[in-house]
Computed example of a mutant assay.
Amino acid sequence: MQRGLVSHLKDFLLELGPDFAFMAEEYRLQVGQQDFFIDLLMYHRRLQALVAFELKITAFSPSMMGQLDFYLEALDRDHRLAHENPSIGVLLARSADTQVVEYALARSASPALVARYLTELPDKTLLEAKLSEFYALEEGDKPDDH
Rank of each mutant, 00 (worst) to 15 (best):
Q33V: 12
S7M: 00
V90I: 14
L50N: 11
A104F: 00
S61G: 09
D97K: 01
T125S: 15
I57P: 02
D144P: 01
D123A: 14
L121W: 00
S132A: 15
V51H: 00
H83K: 09
V100H: 05
A82D: 13
G32L: 01
A52L: 03
A21T: 10
A82T: 08
L91P: 01
E120Y: 15
Q99L: 14
D35G: 05
Y103V: 15
M23W: 08
A59N: 10
A49W: 00
L55S: 09
L127E: 05
D144Q: 11
R45D: 10
F37T: 06
A74S: 13
P122S: 12
R80K: 14
R94C: 07
Y135C: 11
L40T: 04
P111A: 14
L5F: 08
P111I: 11
L131E: 02
V101E: 10
T58C: 12
M23S: 12
Y117F: 12
A49K: 03
L5D: 06
S108V: 03
N85P: 00
F12M: 10
Y117Q: 09
S7T: 05
G66H: 05
A49C: 07
Q48R: 11
L41N: 06
Q99N: 13
K124N: 12
E26M: 06
D35S: 13
R116E: 15
A49R: 00
Q48N: 14
L55Y: 02
E133F: 05
E26A: 15
E133R: 02
Q67V: 07
P86Y: 02
A136T: 10
A59Y: 02
P143T: 03
V114T: 09
L126E: 13
K56A: 14
L81T: 09
S110W: 02
M64V: 02
E15S: 15
Y135T: 03
A49H: 04
F70G: 14
L41V: 05
M1S: 14
V114D: 06
D97I: 03
A21I: 11
P86H: 06
L5I: 13
L50I: 04
Q34A: 14
E54V: 10
